[in-house]
Design a protein around this nucleic acid. Structure first.
Lengths: 334, 334
DNA sequence: TGCTCCTATTTTAACGCTAAAATCGCGACG
DNA sequence: CGTCGCGATTTTAGCGTTAAAATAGGAGCA
């Protein structure tokens, strides 16, 4: 590896002069500067950022740590990247291992030290693990779980979104609406909050809440959603609407409905949550709760940058508003 | 920040003893070890990886650099991550800026020094930019472009995949097949190679190649694909099949066909390329060329690890085989 | 008692960089 | 002609860690 002192020797100057030429910190005489630049060029020198980071005590880099790289998280990451870059920092993504026992390891506190700030997506991390994370590093948590109160946290209005979607289908005539991918758990997490919204919509409309219509699924994949819904259909439980806890689940539902020849929205209305890009292209267009990625990203990055700039004060807990995007999978959508 | 010397002072030992306790390099007496561990615990010490990396001359980290985080790249990244981790290294993702003028900057050679090896996705990078990247750092290029010959490179059998998909539709009765998102360019890149495959299939079947059926699109989004295809339909150009250069494009095509009431596969057969997860769920299931992500990931990571282990020798240029996954969007699919 | 040989621990030095202080060289000025 | 001033350049020191060499402190043995 070519180091600054190689360049210095080649140019016949001290390392500080090389540093000064490259960083334009102290002025350097024109002939010296030229010799240094020539040496840099001929040796192909590139600064060693690890050394610079150690010396500077910062890395100008923010990490976004997510459970996996695809779908929802990929889309959020693409919103976050430009915001981080706008502050002159780099964004890198890291993935927590899929297996829970490795999760904490991947988020080993030591690794956080590599970054000036961290956006940590808490989907699939339990609060107890989080409690063990003690660090002075600025961290903003992101995601649909209860978290220890001393962390900054940005989450969605899950219950409100689910309520909106369900109320919309009720208003358009559905009376038996599955809550696919939701759970009856009381713990505040994504699947229970969205179930609560589904429930609220029923209460507000004066409709009974039938727990048989809450259908949890084993894994949050389209594939599992499809097979789970096929089982429900085949069980004979009558339904005329589906609130899918995520668009990935909604996509599996679309497939299952097609498998059984049920028409959307004529036989069954369908609404999802996340407003993934695909949802507007899958015919007839999937009505979905827009999680307002951009707003979430702005809140989270803004908060993180304030902390990195040294802002103190109590942890902030932001609940980002959501909205319903109506498409062809519910009646009245285009 | 708590450093090793804080721990050493607290425990009444030298920093090296702390280091030896934590790294288990040299044996440390049991009582001393206990005092050190207690000090680590009470101060909440975490090793500074930047310093360790500088000292060690390596970071045990591999970067995957992609144009954006979603769709195709997110899926590839999820395949690559476990392979990299299996070698005891970390994977991080970085994104090249969307704007071409910043691309090289994001891939600034200096930044590559942070990693022991780099997987660089070359979609949207021109070869001339790549030529300027001189570094001894192991790099494996990934993607559907011609690249300077001294780089290791893993790419797909684009032409073969397109040929398979097109031949399949011809065999199932299509005679006028659009090549949506393809280009007539001669340069070897994804869009021209896939067009070449479309062409080969026609020649092999003894069908004429009509260049009006090659329909380029301005940006590789589902939205653009949808509006572009709507224009084609409205222009009155007759067609009974579509080969979409990517599944993202195919998705836009599905939407456009539905917009105009054309049935898939009865009126128009459709095949895409990439076999995205969504493609199996969008009714009636999109026939697609499977890019064999896992195989590509294995080739690329294997090659990179060999280089990181010091393997020398001429650059390898791997063309990973692809296969066709037949679904309901072509006749005879389930 | 004196000496060797281990084992436990410490000292030294370096990874590559840069902030701050020190030094050098030279023209200007009293 | 000595010295002050000032820009150009170098020296010093240290970021936090760890490999390698050095040292201290006993146990074992003649």
């Amino acid at each position: 590896m070519v180091t600054m002192s190689d360049v210095a020797r080649e140019a016949g100057v001290s390392v500080m002069t090389v540093s000064n030429v490259l960083n334009e910190r102290l002025p350097v005489g024109a002939p010296t500067r030229a010799r240094v630049l020539a040496a840099v060029e001929s040796l192909g020198y590139e600064v060693n950022l690890t050394a610079r980071h150690l010396r500077a005590g910062r890395t100008d880099t923010v990490a976004l740590i997510v459970p996996s790289f695809h779908d929802y998280f990929g889309e959020v990451a693409d919103e976050i990247a430009p915001l981080v870059e706008a502050h002159g920092r780099h964004l890198v993504l890291e993935r927590t291992s899929a297996s829970p026992e490795h999760e904490l390891e991947a988020v080993s506190v030591a690794r956080l030290q590599l970054y000036d700030g961290v956006l940590l997506s808490v989907a699939g991390m339990d609060p107890e693990q989080l409690g063990r994370v003690r660090t002075s590093k600025p961290i903003v948590l992101l995601g649909e779980r209860d978290v220890p109160p001393h962390f900054d946290h940005v989450r969605l209005a899950n219950e409100e979104g689910a309520r909106l979607a369900t109320a919309h289908m009720i208003e358009r005539g559905s009376r038996r609406i599955l809550a696919l991918g939701c759970t009856l758990d009381r713990a505040h997490m994504m699947t229970s909050d969205r179930r609560a919204g589904w429930e609220s919509a029923h209460r507000e409309a004066g409709l009974p809440v039938d727990e048989r219509y809450v259908v949890p699924i084993a894994t949050y994949s389209s594939h599992t959603a499809r097979t789970t819904l096929l089982d429900v259909i085949d069980s004979g439980l009558p339904f005329d609407g589906i609130f899918a806890a995520t668009d990935v689940i909604a996509l599996g539902a679309v497939a299952a409905l097609a498998d059984r020849g049920l028409r959307v929205p004529d036989d069954v209305q369908l609404a999802g949550f996340d407003n993934l890009e695909v949802s507007s292209f899958v015919p007839p267009g999937i009505t979905s709760v827009d999680p307002n990625h951009r707003g979430v990203a702005q809140h989270a990055v803004g908060l993180l940058h304030r902390r990195m700039a040294g802002a103190v004060g109590p942890a902030e807990h932001v609940v980002a508003p959501v909205s319903l995007v109506v498409r062809g999978s519910t009646r009245g959508g285009r």
